[in-house]
Design a protein around this nucleic acid. Structure first.
Lengths: 127, 127
DNA sequence: ACCACTTTTGTATTCGTTACAATTTTGTTT
DNA sequence: AAACAAAATTGTAACGAATACAAAAGTGGT
């Protein structure tokens, strides 16, 4: 965190820690629900502020795979996602790295790549 | 449209036509702005209803690449997008088809694949 | 012309996110 | 330690895209 010019605080550490230990691609609300038990005074605005701070600094990812909510990912290794439209589960995938580079470098500067597969997962299909 | 069990109407034809001729990946609002000139009584609800009808039927794509708005695409050939964070421009890409299939078919049923590259485009970089 | 059914429309509501100002915390200087 | 400036946190209010809902208009068949 410090290496990115961000001063640590109790709230910031808690939020980053939540993202690094819960690989659930949570929304701001889910993070709030998860942390407010132990930090009752935590404000939702702080969560939004902090998430923006972190994602601008590149230490977390702001995912747009969910059209209803912003979702956040503490794993910044290039990876893809599978989203089950039925149960909502989000799975991580790690395809070959080549996919994450632009085919031809046409003078573009790439900051983020998002690869999302939408469909029905195995267990939802059989139910 | 009829082949997908959707009855055509003046509004539906206009909305589909807008998406097939404008490759701008518009929001519902942008479609409304573009059509209300010639169809003054067109309602925004109709646009939302119709876009949902079309994307559920698979004749258009509901893109989640923009975290602020739903965006829609009349081009349903598998393709990727580049989004310039500076000027907002959205470009189409057509990588090899293999990318759009799941690496290993793990019993999943894929309905949609979204591949988005976020960054700065050439002209914004030089300005 | 009548009727049932579908589509469209406008308004009201919801809810995730942001704006903003006040309060609290942190770090530094004297 | 006290005082001060700067930064972070908090709560409330506001915004706006998307949805819910009921009324109105349109469509097709008898």
């Amino acid at each position: 965190m410090q290496h990115h010019g961000i001063k640590p605080s109790v709230q910031r550490i808690a939020i980053l820690n939540y993202l690094l230990t819960n690989h659930t691609h949570p929304t701001a609300d889910e993070i709030y629900a998860g942390l407010s038990a132990t930090m009752p005074t935590l404000s939702k605005t702080t969560i939004y502020n902090t998430l923006k701070l972190f994602s601008d600094a590149g230490i977390i990812l702001n995912l747009s795979l969910d059209e209803k909510n912003q979702r956040f990912d503490g794993c910044i290794q290039p990876h893809a996602h599978f989203i089950c439209s039925c149960c909502g589960k989000i799975e991580d995938f790690f395809p070959e790295e080549e996919i994450f580079a632009l085919p031809e470098s046409s003078g573009k500067e790439i900051h983020k790549v998002e690869i999302s597969y939408y469909g029905i997962c195995h267990s939802c299909k059989c139910r």
